[in-house]
Structures are given as C-alpha cells and as structure tokens.
Write a protein that binds this DNA or RNA. Structure first.
Lengths: 130, 130
DNA sequence: ATACTCCATGGAGTCAACTCCAGGTCAAGA
DNA sequence: TCTTGACCTGGAGTTGACTCCATGGAGTAT
C-alpha cells in the first residue's frame, strides 16, 4: 500500500507518516525497488494503533519506547506492561479532567440557555464572572 | 491574595498566571499600591474556571473570546452559549478518542498480563506487532 | 523524449502554550 | 541603612508535534 493510500485511510498526512517513522513510532517500512514506501498489512495495524493512541494524546516519546520494547522481543513483556499501565493512568487522569470540564460547560450552558430565554442571569454563588 | 498563593492553590506557576492575564483569559487583576497583583475572590473563581477548562484542553484562544464576550455584558449571552456548545462538542470528540484508546490499552494490557504469566503471547489477528 | 504525478530526503519553519531570564521596584526585618 | 525575598515587565527561549519546502529520482502515459 502506498503512503498516499495509508494517509487517506487513516486521515493523516503523508508528512506525518514519514515523521512518525523517522521519530520511531512506526517500524522501518519496506520499500519498492524504486525506493517508495510499501506498507504491509502488519504495518497498517501498527499505524492504526499509533494513530489511535496519538489522537488520545499519548506522547510520541512513550510510543517510541513502546515500539522499541516490542522490537526487542518477548523478553520485554513486563516492561511493556508497565508502560501501558502508566499510560492508562494518564488517560484516566485526562478523562477525569475532561469530565470535570464537561460538567462545568454543561452547567454554564444550562445557565445561559435560561438567561437567553428570560433575558437575564440570576445571581449564583458558583458563578465566576469577573 | 498574592500570586504565589494563587499559584499554589491551583497548582500552576506564577508565570502561567501572568501569561493567562496577558493572553486575555483572566481579567486585569487589581494591584496593591506597590504594583503587585492582588487576586480578589471573584478572580479566584474565574481562575479556577479557566484552569479547569485549560486542563481539559480547551484552547486559550477560545477562552480569550469567552472572557471578551463576558466582559461585553449580558447582550452576548447567545454568543457565549454558542461558543460553549461548540467547545462541548470538542470535549465530546476528545472523550470518544480517549475511550477508544483506553479500550486498546486495556486489551493490550490484558494480553500482556497473560503473556507475562504464561511466558508467551498467542497469536491473534487483532495484534499489531510490527 | 517529454510531461506528469507520486514519492524520497534533509532541514527549516510554524504553532500553541508555556517557561525562563535580566534588570528593576517595593516592603519588611536586623 | 542594608539586605532579603517576593513581585514586576518585556522579551527571548523551549517543547512537542507536526508541516512545509527545495531538490531530485521513478514510473507511466503521450
């Protein structure tokens, strides 16, 4: 599969794919005789995995380490497990922050809806207008 | 309240607080006769609000607009509502990405746990090892 | 042979959001 | 009065993650 097809399949640019490979979160992709990247099915799985984790905000640096361990073979299962657990904790913290912000937004939205309907905002000690 | 106290209260640096003010996501903070910032209780509410939304990844730019509208008065309720709704959509999308990544991590973690126990990883078509 | 399109590389540039720093003011304590 | 510590400002520097660009090779259609 060409880089163009892969970039379209996953909705990221070709530049990003090349950057990921250089950065080390994708393995060295096979080349055609002419030198063009030729993504194999296993590569696509890994690309999808990385794209998903990146979209959730996992740092490239951690993913580099993860690929490195994976390529070192089965002996690194415990380290990989530790790394994934740590990242899971990070995602969990991120989820909490999102939920907190979501609650705030929902509260504000409901207040503004009210205000738009009645034309004024009744005072509330939880308000934070400067 | 001094900038030091505020920074400790919310776990952000003094530099960040000054940056937020300059960037326009905090209102102009009152000063002591000597020129030092003196955060009032309403300021603290707003700071908390901004810190919470920033932690969830809401862009500074949107928050600037939000503060601007707020300071323009009650006539901007509809715009503020629209802005908050838009940001709510963003958080929702972010939540979905997080959930997707979380599922992947959990799956991987369970597989690695198994592997660490048995000493090997049985093959699985959903695997994405490069 | 020419043109066109896709792809490669190395390196520079961009962007958001801080973070750090130099040089200076101010108030309180020894 | 001198020192110390917290604070000020404007501006430069950093970080992470891309994104863009100039230049050049390959493969295909005319």
């Amino acid at each position: 599969m060409t880089i163009k097809e892969v970039s379209e399949k996953f909705g990221i640019t070709q530049d990003t794919l090349r950057y990921y490979e250089k950065a080390g979160i994708l393995p060295r992709i096979a080349r055609t005789p002419g030198g063009a990247r030729d993504y194999r099915p296993e590569d696509l799985n890994w690309v999808e995995h990385m794209v998903c984790l990146r979209r959730a905000g996992m740092p490239v640096e951690s993913l580099v380490e993860y690929l490195r361990l994976t390529q070192l073979g089965d002996g690194t299962f415990p380290e990989r497990l530790a790394l994934l657990r740590e990242q899971r904790e990070n995602l969990l913290r991120q989820q909490e922050k999102l939920n907190e912000a979501m609650d705030r937004l929902d509260y504000k939205i409901s207040r503004y809806q009210e205000a738009v309907k009645t034309g004024s905002l009744s005072w509330d000690h939880t308000e934070a207008e400067p």
